[in-house]
């Protein structure tokens, strides 16, 4: 019994150190301009990383990040339809009000198109990080897949001019 306690004592000292996760590993908000590796304005999935079980659904939001003078967007998204199934698609906060200008097209498997326009009596455009839509997917087969913005996606100012999009974030799904 003496030796048992002695061994415990040794383990006690050996275990007297905590693992401290580095800040860089902690700060992984996809909307954090100081941490992400893409420039703004950008289209971003928030959150962007999913570890889910097979058949389980998950939700992600589409953000226009770091925008200035934005009036409307046309977002094109593609995903692997053999691994993911779109369950639902909801309006975000860019197009709000009683009759929001928010249109979607999900007819093509593996592809989603969203058009959303900001309407307000106070101003004709909006700045910052803006939620465009919410997507709900479910996994239909095991494996890793991505959700991507297509380069044809657009951001428009009140004069209908294109705003240069400098970054597209990627969503990563790991179905177990």
């Amino acid at each position: 019994m003496k030796y048992f306690f002695s061994i415990l004592f040794v383990f006690f000292f050996l275990s007297c150190e905590n693992d401290v996760t580095g800040v860089d590993d902690l700060l992984d908000n996809p909307l954090d301009e100081n941490q992400v590796d893409y420039d703004v304005p950008a289209f971003v999935f928030y959150p962007s990383l999913f570890d889910v079980s097979l058949g389980q659904s998950f939700q992600t939001q589409i953000y226009a990040m770091g925008v200035e003078n934005l009036r409307g967007v046309n977002v094109l998204i593609e995903y692997d339809e053999t691994k993911l199934s779109l369950q639902n698609l909801n309006n975000g906060s860019l197009a709000d009000g009683t009759n929001p200008l928010f249109f979607t097209d999900t007819d093509t498997p593996g592809r989603i198109e969203i058009s959303s326009v900001y309407m307000s009596a106070d101003s004709g455009s909006v700045d910052g990080n803006l939620k465009i839509a919410e997507l709900i997917f479910s996994t239909i087969s095991i494996g890793s897949s991505t959700i991507d913005f297509m380069n044809e996606s657009e951001m428009l100012d009140p004069d209908d001019n294109l705003i240069e999009i400098k970054g597209f974030a990627q969503g990563v799904v790991n179905a177990n």
Partner: peptide, 28 residues
């Protein structure tokens, strides 16, 4: 921090996390 979507909130919490990390290192 992870729940924040505006840049100002994100920066506020990120700064807090960095400061706490420094204190954690010291305590460790």
């Amino acid at each position: 921090y992870n729940a924040s979507v505006t840049q100002s909130d994100i920066e506020t919490y990120a700064t807090k996390i960095i400061n706490l990390d420094s204190d954690l290192q010291s305590a460790n």
